[in-house]
């Protein structure tokens, strides 16, 4: 599913070269629920960007579904993000002008899915996260937990190979956090592959497997 081989990413900050990722190796198998834990500045975000095809590594090899990513053009990367990856961000990242259902519909529009099928799939996805009654609401009319559910629905609607969640509970209170994590558990049980990035041990522990990241290096914590 995901295979990182000696992946490096170097940032030039002033005169100093910072190894955000230093020969990182990671293997995620289909239908796995993996959490990647590390303090801020450990290279978490860089790892997430590379796994999510938002950025390309400077060295090493990244295989997604067996295909090497580094050779792709920007448009091909957009296509990969569109079809293979579902993002859930800490700050929800919904488009404020669009209603819940339009936000969920957007990746399908980019795929060129027909209108009738889009509506069907959007409905299913919102149903799945329990928000079908709020489909017409704008993000500002929804609570934080509900916005994150919309974001999860948007990630699910394309039936991606991988759901990539970056601190999905970071902006939520503990009760809503539990609800969202419960939802990830359910999604995992239904056979989705999930990579969850967090700095919170309690959250990380809910995954079946934990990978630790520190100073750009990855270490398995448990298997």
């Amino acid at each position: 599913m995901i295979e990182l081989r000696d992946v490096s990413k170097i940032y030039q900050i002033g005169d100093e070269r910072v190894h955000a990722l230093d020969h990182a190796n990671l293997h995620v198998y289909p239908k796995e629920f993996v959490s990647i834990i590390g303090p801020s500045g450990s290279g978490k975000s860089t790892l997430m960007n590379i796994i999510g095809c938002l950025d390309v590594a400077d060295g090493g090899q990244y295989l997604l579904d067996g295909m090497p990513i580094e050779a792709y053009s920007e448009n091909e990367l957009a296509n990969v993000r569109n079809r293979k990856i579902g993002f859930v961000f800490q700050s929800f990242n919904l488009i404020a002008k669009l209603s819940a259902e339009e936000n969920v519909e957007l990746p399908l529009i980019y795929q060129g899915v027909k209108r009738a099928e889009r509506q069907q799939r959007v409905h299913e996805a919102l149903e799945r996260v329990g928000l079908s009654k709020r489909a017409k609401h704008l993000p500002t009319e929804l609570s934080g937990g509900q916005q994150q559910r919309v974001a999860v629905a948007r990630a699910l609607v394309t039936k991606p190979s991988l759901i990539l969640a970056d601190e999905p509970t970071g902006n939520l209170d503990s009760k809503t956090s539990r609800e969202i994590m419960q939802m990830f558990q359910e999604l995992h049980e239904q056979g989705n592959t999930i990579v969850l990035i967090t700095h919170d041990n309690d959250i990380a522990r809910q995954a079946k497997r934990i990978v630790h990241i520190l100073d750009g290096r990855l270490t398995e914590v448990s298997l």
Partner: peptide, 11 residues
């Protein structure tokens, strides 16, 4: 950024 992340191409 959001649109690009969920798969909007340059075009």
């Amino acid at each position: 950024g959001i649109r690009k992340a969920i798969g909007a191409s340059r075009r």
